[in-house]
Design a protein around this nucleic acid. Sequence first.
DNA 1: GATCCACGGGAATACACGGATG
DNA 2: CATCCGTGTATTCCCGTGGATC
Length: 388
Amino acid sequence: MDIEARIQRRQRRDGEPRLLVDYDSLSPVAHTDDPVNCGPVLERLLDYLDPVFDGHLPPNAYVYGPKGSGKSAVVTALFDHLVRASSVNNAAIHTTTRVQATFAPRFVYVDARETTSAFAFYHAVLDALVDESVPKQGIKTEALQSRLKAALGGPKTGAVVAVDHLEEPGTLDGEAFVDLCAGLPSKVSWLAIGRAPPDETVLTDYTAGAIQFEPYQSQVLVDVLMTRVSAAGSRRTLDHRLARDIAEWADGDAHDALAALFGAADEAVRNRHRSITAADVAAGIAAVPRPCVSLGRVFSLPENRQQVLHELLTLRPDQQQSVQATSQHIAKSVDLSATTVKRILYELAEDGITRRVTAERVDRKGRPPSRLEPQFPTVVFERLFAAQ
DNA sequence: GATCCACGGGAATACACGGATG
DNA sequence: CATCCGTGTATTCCCGTGGATC
């Protein structure tokens, strides 16, 4: 946090202390280096990775748990450390190796939301593995595969690839992912991360074990919220009791809790409150639909889809009586034809980003129209979208 | 020239509903 | 009464084109 921001935060206006918050610290899509209170699951992940320190690759594994239970937060933090440790200083791992051979495993984190094709997937893995830049176009997918093989050619190398957000709408499904992994060199083990319980996914047909993430306990969630709040502003910004209210409402889902907190902080800032009030919290909670789609999914959408969503949020209710009318209005402010906008709107609804609500009754003929309800935290989206 | 993929457009299909038909 | 039909929408699906990069 730079000095400028710290000073700004202390500035007064109208003699009143004014709340200023650092929205990045509250963002449900931002993960911290050091997730709060995740000891037990972290230990289980390290247990799984233990063979690495013995000079072997671990088997494939599956990490699962509901949205907002900390899967991405913990795995990204862990892999960040491992990547740093293995690339900056291989010795760190070598010296703890109990056998003589110098086994230098690599660690790769891939977000399936960003890699929806075979090409993109192999590209992501290879790009993380080699220093030179890897072409994004113009070469065959098979060319990437052989380069991967070459990159892991050494006798004492191997890689553990964590693939996050599998089997979401719009990302790789289990079958496709397993097929892609079959095209990887044999010296690669994968750690799949998804939401489905082990018995509801084909992924576990190919893994030796599964690691479960439970929804956050209310008390832990309160800690998470308070930690984020103090990173974003001052500890006094949020009353402990209000944090508890948010946590109770969120029912163990850190994503939703942070989204609500973000909305509450935004409301407080706009009302020039000196701290977050109960009414602000109520407004913050109200701006998070339930069930709620993860913002991470929304922000990994292509730019023009996000544009369409942004415009959708600016329309008046009377402009979105039907999908057709909605797309025509949106097409006016976006560089896409109404037909294309319409198709995009249907795709977004299909993926659960929005929800179609069919009108009760219309005048006469024809199938009744639908309106689209956002299924993601709109306030947070607007703020972070504007900041992009 | 190869290769990947985003775009755009519209054709095809499904649906709702009232009214006609057998 | 059951079914079909016409009309006007909503919704899904498919495929060609073109930019960008190697």
